[in-house]
Design a protein around this nucleic acid. Sequence first.
DNA 1: CAAAAAATGAGTACTACTACCTATTTTTTG
DNA 2: CAAAAAATAGGTAGTAGTACTCATTTTTTG
Lengths: 217, 217
Amino acid sequence: MIQVAVVDDHPLICEGISQLVAHWQPAEIHTFLDGKKGLEFIRKRQPDIAILDVDLGDMSGLEIAEIIQQESLTTRVIILTLHKDKAYFLRALDYGALGYINKDCLSQEIINCLEAVYQGKQFIGSTAFEDPEEISEYLDAINQTRKQFNLLTQSEKNIVLLICQNFNTKEISEHLFISPRTVDNHRANVCKKLDLKGQNSLLKWTMEHKNVLERMV
Amino acid sequence: MIQVAVVDDHPLICEGISQLVAHWQPAEIHTFLDGKKGLEFIRKRQPDIAILDVDLGDMSGLEIAEIIQQESLTTRVIILTLHKDKAYFLRALDYGALGYINKDCLSQEIINCLEAVYQGKQFIGSTAFEDPEEISEYLDAINQTRKQFNLLTQSEKNIVLLICQNFNTKEISEHLFISPRTVDNHRANVCKKLDLKGQNSLLKWTMEHKNVLERMV
DNA sequence: CAAAAAATGAGTACTACTACCTATTTTTTG
DNA sequence: CAAAAAATAGGTAGTAGTACTCATTTTTTG
């Protein structure tokens, strides 16, 4: 049976979400009215899904999401928010939340979100923003970087990630126990694949996309 | 007479702040219960100080701070928050807010904050965080970058900022109508002053501190 | 197993940034 | 005005990354 944690400081919303989850499919639902207890449970039991409110009394659901990411817990995160704040959403993304929905969305949307997130897919509520413009631009940018990175072979990826960490060719070769010439070749191939031209173009590219790349380990 | 805008969706807090401001010194105080009207006023009248709540009904005070920064308004910003969330603080800093205080601080502290911010100084409430450790580390890092940057002469600063924007030596020289050799010399001097050694060390430094440097124009 | 893809290594040339140096002109400052 | 600081420009050398070539070995995949 699926385990779901619901963390929200409003008892009414906790109750509502629980009903919706039960409606979605039979699940073991645990509700928490404050962040610390919720986090404690998530750490210990690693439920399949955690539904986190942004504005908890003692801490933010975003902080919990950050911890889940940092500690590599298997729990998938849905962030619930009252405010249509772009920055909340960006942070939720950064912290690896898969779901992001506004509290005034329809019940069906929450169920769709649960289903998507349970399958490991991203789900962003249709009522989550005032202006979906910027958000989609941001998402596109991240997606493009990811796509580009995924054009690379494993060795090439490793090398790019080492460049991210300020290693130069010589240091990379020592770190990977291979010839600097090999590293050179991989670098050249990466440049070709990503259409990077000119001096330090690869270094610049990795540093510009550092945020995205660092999360692709 | 000083102009102060207070934006908070809780009428009680608006009232309390107004009283405190009046207690501090005679001022023309304008209160707003929602973000949009507050922002409209700030844009039009550019008051000396704006006290912004993080959790407004329609938008976040942080968004308003961001707009104030983007549009280079002269208004100095104090961010008020209910939650002791580190990320809020970091965003407030990024958006150029000078004051940052928690709502459960003492009245005197708010007055101290008003005074400091009015003088253009930064003021961070003593009760604003659970763990002042990380915050001060972050602040130190930013301050160190600023200090380093301020070791540079104007030309050197200009060149560093252009490196930030992905210009290479040749492009910088064309942009500034000077010889590439001159640019080379400035770069070398910067490397010396900042104790940067090795290939691309200056490029790496500027990209690592891009966030801070970009705000130093 | 055979073909394809990836990883490994090297040769050569070019370019950009650093690391020294000197020197002149312009601007700031006491 | 005189001294100091900054901006300008150049010489020469070394190093690291890009740009292309080729070849061999290992791993993946149909």
